Simulated assay, not measured.
Amino acid sequence: MAIKSRNISADGKREMTINEFKMWMKKFDADKDGKISRKELAEAVYVSGGWFAKLKAKRKIRNVDSNGNGYVDESEFKNLVEFAEKHLAVRILHF
């Protein structure tokens, strides 16, 4: 489940639009409930080459999950974008 994008920037980050990022994240939504769980986020970190994926996901989902329900839903997607730019070697292109 590699990240597909048009460009890789000079700093090695994969560049994608917000829609491309949403489509990529949906691939990790194993139960198709429209939310990303800690386990699903850990898989995204692991696939993008992150070390200690489960630990990172457990710690960082607290920052992303603003309502504290253990999932990242559509209303928290902005937080997920910020997480991705810091921890998934992704740059979101805003047009």
Rank of each mutant, 00 (worst) to 15 (best):
M1P: 13
M1V: 14
M1I: 08
A2S: 07
I3G: 05
K4Y: 10
K4N: 06
S5L: 03
R6W: 14
N7R: 11
N7I: 12
I8Y: 08
I8M: 14
A10W: 05
A10I: 04
A10H: 04
D11R: 05
D11V: 09
D11T: 07
D11I: 07
K13F: 12
K13Y: 03
K13H: 10
K13C: 08
R14Q: 12
E15M: 09
T17C: 05
T17W: 03
I18Q: 09
N19Y: 01
E20Q: 15
E20C: 09
E20F: 12
E20G: 10
M23W: 13
W24M: 06
W24Q: 07
M25I: 13
M25L: 15
K26F: 03
K26S: 03
F28G: 09
F28N: 05
F28Y: 04
F28I: 02
D29L: 08
D29N: 10
D29R: 02
D29I: 01
A30P: 04
D31M: 02
D31T: 01
K32R: 14
D33A: 01
D33C: 00
D33G: 00
D33W: 01
K35R: 15
K35G: 15
I36H: 13
S37H: 01
S37K: 01
S37N: 08
R38S: 08
K39G: 11
K39M: 06
E40H: 05
L41A: 12
L41M: 12
L41S: 06
A42E: 13
E43F: 06
V45K: 07
V45A: 15
Y46G: 03
Y46S: 13
Y46T: 14
Y46I: 01
V47W: 13
S48N: 08
S48W: 03
G50R: 12
G50C: 09
G50M: 09
G50Y: 08
W51C: 03
W51E: 03
F52P: 12
F52M: 14
F52C: 08
A53W: 10
A53K: 09
L55M: 00
L55P: 00
K56W: 02
K56T: 09
K56C: 02
K56N: 05
K56I: 10
A57Y: 01
A57P: 07
K58D: 04
K58I: 02
R59H: 00
R59L: 00
K60P: 03
I61N: 07
I61P: 08
R62P: 13
R62W: 06
N63E: 15
N63G: 14
V64P: 09
V64M: 10
D65Y: 10
N67C: 13
N67S: 12
G68C: 14
G68S: 12
N69P: 10
G70K: 05
Y71R: 03
V72F: 13
V72D: 15
D73G: 01
E74R: 13
S75L: 15
S75W: 15
E76T: 01
F77C: 08
K78F: 13
K78C: 15
N79C: 07
L80Q: 11
L80V: 12
L80A: 07
L80F: 06
V81T: 12
E82H: 04
F83R: 02
A84E: 11
E85W: 04
E85I: 00
H87P: 05
H87A: 14
L88R: 03
L88Q: 05
L88D: 07
V90R: 02
V90N: 00
V90H: 01
I92Q: 01
I92H: 00
H94V: 04
F95W: 11
F95D: 09
